[in-house]
Simulated assay, not measured.
Amino acid sequence: MTQAGYPFVVKELKRAQPLSEACEIFRGEPTDVLTSPFVLRDSKGHIHATGAGRAISSFEFEYVVFRPDRPVKLNLPKKGAMNGLAGSRLLVTLDEDWTPPGDISFTAGR
Rank of each mutant, 00 (worst) to 15 (best):
A81E: 13
F38M: 09
L34K: 15
L94H: 02
R41G: 00
E12M: 15
L13H: 11
L90Q: 06
D32V: 09
E29C: 03
T93R: 13
F38N: 08
V92K: 02
G51S: 06
A16T: 11
G109Y: 02
R15H: 10
D97N: 14
G28I: 09
K73A: 12
G80K: 05
S20C: 00
K78H: 11
E12K: 15
V10Y: 03
P7G: 13
K14V: 05
A16L: 11
Y6S: 07
G51Y: 01
K44Y: 13
F59G: 00
I104N: 09
P68Y: 04
M82Q: 06
S88G: 12
P30C: 05
V39I: 15
D103F: 08
V33M: 12
G84I: 08
G28T: 07
G45W: 00
D103N: 13
M82I: 15
I104Y: 10
L76T: 09
G45N: 06
F59I: 04
L85P: 03
F106D: 07
R41Y: 01
G87I: 13
T99S: 01
R27K: 15
P37N: 08
L94D: 00
S58A: 10
L19V: 10
R67M: 11
S36Q: 12
R15T: 13
R54S: 05
G28S: 06
A52T: 04
E62W: 04
F8P: 02
R27I: 12
E21S: 11
F61Q: 06
P100I: 00
Y63W: 10
D32M: 11
G102W: 06
I47K: 10
S88Q: 15
Q3I: 12
S88Y: 10
E21I: 01
P101N: 00
